[in-house]
Design a protein around this nucleic acid. Structure first.
Length: 698
RNA sequence: GGUUACAUAGCUCAGUUGGUUAGAGCACCUGACUCAUAAUCAGGGGGUCAUAGGUUCGAGUCCUUUUGUAGCCA
């Protein structure tokens, strides 16, 4: 079913980022950069495009993270939605609309979608028994249950998987299951759910994918679909017992929400609606007209949802078109290890943007030139540096600079009139004309890595032309010839300015500024570039040269490597100290100023007396010599220390804390404590010899 | 465990339907040049195409084995 005619419009989606963390280079290389290149290319060719995305804000993981951190899901999604949205915008991902699944338009769209399928009888209803936490009054998603693994005996296995032996489990299989919310023992309780019977769509999928897209879908995508279909598709639950998400909008759906994978892809549609509303357009053609080409950019972990489940949903609904292609990318690693949000093993986009200001295109280029299109790839900072210094600076930037500098040197920045074109000039101009098609060839087949290299080849063509023609020598003997040479070189530079736009949008803009193309009077777009004789006319004034790229020094790379090394160390010590018990690192608090800090008066003190507070399990009444005075401090450490053991101990005391009465005893300060790996409270003690009472801590 | 994909020079990758001495960029070595961000241009060395077998006149390309990596499923 590959389309042979040119589509009237394009709907391009890129995977909705999950709002449990910021965007990192893996997301960029796999999804957003290729999607953005494709979209910019389509726009340059004058196509009607809707490029939509948004934050995916539902699901168990966010609900769980919220409970763990003691905040509401909304606080989490707002935080990450804002970070993500801003970093995309700053990075130049040119979404027509970036929405979020908590938006009203999405709730409505997803609800309606569900209702329509419900009314058509496209769901199966089934009652199953699930674990239920009576105290919290809610059903427990697999991740909310821990217990002993029935296979290996590991005591901290999750309801869906044992991280010790790696086997997947059902929550009901766990021995001694416990709710992670209350710690209580869950009971089995009946619950009703709605299932999408994928088996009904088997014939359709077989025909559509296995016959229709055998040739044009990537091997991995096609192969995975084939294995799913061949194994026999089963009904899949599209609702969950959860309090975070889109409420099931039909009778009996109280306390239940749509499965996040049911609502998320509908987010593409909602986002399109939001965009159309704002732009005063009709969203429907973008999703319902057969002459629209729909393409989903995703990572390989999402293949089944975008190729099997979502298309089945769309088919069931009946009004929608299906994706023409799903160019799923493989994964990117970082310095030899898997990227991990929870382990902080990543190059975070929002941090990159701060650490390498105005260098968006460098990261775009490095990620494109080394994109994980056919297999997992490794991002290394050394490669990043090499791509920048050897290619962007040395080949692309340098060519442009030498052309601009020579033009100013010889002609005060005015494009010279060519004299007679020799064979080499004609060949070079002819080669230049061929580039739009060369690049189209790559981009139409989603080969962005190849495309980026072809673009670089155009700059190479320019460098070679100059090296062969040697205008700097001829200027002394043959001025007419030099005019022709510089004219040709300027045409190539202009070609680069136009053709680099999808790959290097910021650079393209800058280069167009140098060449002053907007006032040249020549229409230079992708389509007529190949047909046009002149891209930058003789007599046209260009602006002074500006460097397009700067070199990246070894020290900058080392800094990034050190940062990763520090992460490794943090992770290693975290694993050691939490060997058996999962211990969450408390998130960093809001920043304070130095003035805030200096308000704290902390001193070295010595405990001179200690006794238990009557009728209190946790409290000790201490007399502490602070160097200033001897004062009474009540401390909640009785469970960890015997009073007699701590007399004479040197401790850190916050002395200017407002006094407070605890159990009738006034406490005049606070002793600083921390916790060791076993959860035991320990003193933060100034144990260096010769440190006396009353010394200020700063 | 099942399944899908991947495995080609030191590194990153091309290699369409099997067809002459396996290609490119980077790195390395040599030479040329100086307009240019010590950039550029030319030339060179370097691979028994993961492994073992098979089909074929002929296989990096098709089939099977083993190993490794990754995704998905159980």
């Amino acid at each position: 079913m590959s389309q042979t005619t040119t589509p009237s419009r394009y709907t391009i989606t890129s995977a909705l980022p999950y709002t449990n963390g910021p965007i990192h280079i893996g997301h960029l290389a796999g999804v957003y950069v290729p999607a953005d290149i494709y979209v910019r290319y389509l726009r340059l060719k004058g196509h009607d495009v809707a490029f939509v995305c948004g934050s995916d804000e539902h699901g168990v993981a966010i609900s769980m993270k919220a409970k763990k951190e003691g905040v509401t899901p909304k606080e989490i999604i707002d935080k990450y939605h804002n970070i993500i949205k801003k970093s995309f915008a700053d990075f130049g991902i040119s979404f027509d609309n970036y929405s979020r699944t908590s938006a009203e338009v999405h709730h409505e769209t997803a609800s309606d979608f569900f209702k329509k399928l419900y009314e058509k009888g496209d769901f199966i209803e089934e009652e199953t028994e699930q674990l239920y936490d009576e105290e919290a009054q809610q059903f427990l998603a697999d991740r909310f249950v821990v217990g002993t693994c029935p296979k290996c005996g590991h005591e901290e296995a999750y309801g869906d998987q044992c991280e010790n032996c790696g086997s997947s489990l059902n929550a009901t299989d766990l021995i001694n299951p416990k709710s992670t919310i209350t710690g209580g023992v869950p009971i089995l309780k009946k619950t009703k759910h709605w299932f999408l019977p994928l088996d009904r769509y088997e014939d359709f999928l077989r025909k559509w994918i296995l016959e229709g897209h055998k040739a044009d879908w990537k091997p991995n995508v096609y192969g995975q679909c084939k294995s799913w279909i061949d194994e026999g598709l089963k009904p899949r639950a599209v609702t969950r017992d959860l309090d975070w998400g889109i409420p099931v909008p039909v009778e009996g759906g109280e306390g239940k929400v749509l499965y996040v994978w049911f609502d998320a892809p509908i987010g593409y549609i909602s986002s399109t609606k939001e965009w159309a509303e704002r732009e005063g357009k009709d969203w429907k053609p973008y999703w319902m007209n057969q002459d629209t080409k729909l393409v989903h950019f995703i990572g390989k972990d999402n293949i089944v949802f975008h190729c099997i489940i979502f298309p089945s949903m769309l088919k069931a609904h009946g009004d929608f078109i299906l994706p023409e292609n799903v160019p799923a990318n493989e994964f990117l690693n970082l310095e030899g290890n898997k990227l991990s949000t929870s382990k902080n093993w990543a190059v975070w986009l929002h941090e990159y943007l701060e650490e390498f200001p105005d260098m968006q295109d460098v990261l775009r280029y490095a990620l494109t030139a080394n994109a994980p299109e056919t297999k997992d790839n490794d991002f290394t900072w050394k490669d990043f540096q090499a791509r920048n210094n050897n290619e962007l600076v040395a080949i692309f930037g340098n060519f442009v600079n030498r052309v601009a500098v020579l033009t100013h040197k010889y002609y005060d920045g005015i494009v010279p009139s060519p004299y007679t074109f020799e064979a080499v000039d004609k060949e070079t101009l002819e080669a230049l004309k061929g580039y739009p098609e060369i690049l189209s060839n790559s981009l139409d087949r989603y080969r962005f890595r190849e495309g980026s290299q072809e673009l670089m080849n155009l700059a190479r063509l320019g460098n070679k032309y100059l090296a062969d023609a040697e205008p700097w020598k001829l200027i002394k003997t043959d001025e007419e010839r030099v005019k022709t040479i510089m004219y040709v070189a300027l045409q190539i530079a202009t070609g680069l300015a136009v053709l680099s736009e999808p790959f290097l949008p910021f650079t393209s803009e800058k280069l167009k500024g140098i060449l002053n193309v907007k006032s040249s009077g020549v229409e230079t777009d992708w389509n007529n570039l190949g047909a046009q004789e002149t891209l930058l006319p003789a007599g046209h004034q260009i602006n002074p040269s500006e460097l397009l790229f700067r070199k990246i020094e070894d020290a900058e790379i080392q800094q990034q490597l050190d940062k990763l090394e520090a992460t490794k160390k943090t992770n290693a010590s975290a694993t050691n100290s939490t060997d058996s018990m999962e211990k969450e690192v408390t998130p960093q608090k809001d920043t304070i100023t130095f003035d805030d800090f200096s308000k704290l008066d902390m001193r070295v003190g010595t405990i001179i007396e200690a006794e238990k507070m009557p009728k209190a399990d946790k409290l000790l009444v201490l007399k502490v010599d602070t160097g200033l005075d001897t004062r009474t401090i009540v401390s909640g450490i009785a469970e960890s220390f015997n009073p007699e053991d701590i007399v004479g101990k040197k401790v850190t005391v916050l002395v200017n804390l407002a006094p407070r009465k605890l159990r009738g005893v006034e406490s005049e300060g606070m002793i600083l404590m921390t916790e060791n790996k076993d959860g035991k409270i320990v003193f933060l003690n100034p144990d260096e010899d010769g440190v006396g009472n009353g010394e200020v801590i700063s």
